[in-house]
Amino acid sequence: MSIQHFRVALIPFFAAFCLPVFAHPETLVKVKDAEDQLGARVGYIELDLNSGKILESFRPEERFPMMSTFKVLLCGAVLSRVDAGQEQLGRRIHYSQNDLVKYSPVTEKHLTDGMTVRELCSAAITMSDNTAANLLLTTIGGPKELTAFLHNMGDHVTRLDRWEPELNEAIPNDERDTTMPAAMATTLRKLLTGELLTLASRQQLIDWMEADKVAGPLLRSALPAGWFIADKSGASERGSRGIIAALGPDGKPSRIVVIYTTGSQATMDERNRQIAEIGASLIKHW
């Protein structure tokens, strides 16, 4: 058993032996400061991975655009179909130039040979490839079927209504393609630790998130040596930015963190910096 498999397999085991986890309101002070700095709403939640207890939250039940963070949920739905014998990670999917949409750094290189379902999930999560996400959405029946999958998990909040890139429109008060921090954190925890997916599929999902290559300026920039993080970021119109993550010290995840912001006029660099500073406060007061 690899170190990674050891880590995921023991998450339920550690729940019975973990020390009490204490919240630190200092992080919420930073979240509120980020709102002031960005001139935008910020949603935040910090969840204990083992118990599911909410440690801190700010606007946990307000809607925010999901942006590309939905791609983790999408690959969770794909893995659920794999577990049920309805899909194979090794199945190759062929597509054409007409299928390519904006920001497809991986799929645009494989027009001649296509990509496997496994490769598409990797591209969608680690590189946020939009065509990969659309191709995967097609395999499960489209955005409405992803919403149905989430409903069956008990998440009646999170919804996907459109495809890439239209889902990134982020119109104020538009509930399409949105979630709430509390709903996203709970759903992510179920995917990573619950019985919905097999152990192998849970491991695969967290491996893809751990290999994320496009979230460096966010929480990863504040991470001390030896800490673990598996994450997925997102960005969209109207100053929207977000990240969902499982992270913790000693090389294993122990908390879920979800951060969303929307409605800012700030630059992408400034949005990144504010999220990184929230992460730094979280780690300092861990």
Rank of each mutant, 00 (worst) to 15 (best):
I3H: 15
I3M: 13
F6L: 13
R7V: 10
F14W: 11
A15S: 15
D36V: 13
Q37E: 11
L38T: 08
G43R: 01
G43M: 00
Y44Q: 01
L47A: 07
D48M: 05
L55R: 07
S57V: 07
R59A: 05
P60S: 15
F64L: 11
P65L: 05
P65D: 02
P65A: 06
M66R: 01
G76C: 04
A77V: 10
R81S: 07
R81K: 15
G85A: 09
G85R: 10
G85W: 05
G90T: 14
G90V: 10
R91Q: 05
I93E: 03
H94C: 10
H94F: 15
Q97L: 13
T107S: 12
E108R: 15
A123T: 02
A132T: 00
A133S: 09
T138N: 14
T138A: 15
T139P: 03
I140R: 02
P143T: 04
E145K: 13
A148G: 11
M153Q: 08
M153V: 10
L160R: 01
L160F: 07
D161N: 04
E164D: 04
E164V: 04
E166W: 10
E169A: 10
P172E: 14
N173H: 12
N173G: 10
N173P: 09
D174E: 07
E175N: 11
R176P: 05
M180R: 10
A185C: 04
T187I: 05
T187L: 06
L188W: 01
L188T: 07
R189I: 05
G194C: 12
L196R: 13
L197V: 03
A200N: 14
A200V: 11
A200Q: 15
S201F: 13
Q204T: 13
I206Y: 15
D207A: 14
D207H: 14
E210V: 12
A211R: 13
K213Y: 09
A215R: 03
A215Q: 04
L218A: 02
L223F: 04
P224N: 04
P224F: 01
G226Y: 04
W227V: 02
I229S: 02
D231L: 04
K232H: 03
K232F: 00
S236G: 03
G239H: 07
G242Y: 00
L247Q: 01
P249R: 06
D250A: 13
K252D: 07
P253E: 05
I256G: 03
I259F: 05
Y260F: 11
Y260N: 02
T261A: 11
G263D: 11
Q265M: 13
D269C: 10
E270V: 10
I275T: 01
A276R: 12
E277D: 09
I278T: 00
I278A: 00
I283C: 07
K284W: 07
K284C: 09
H285W: 10
H285G: 06
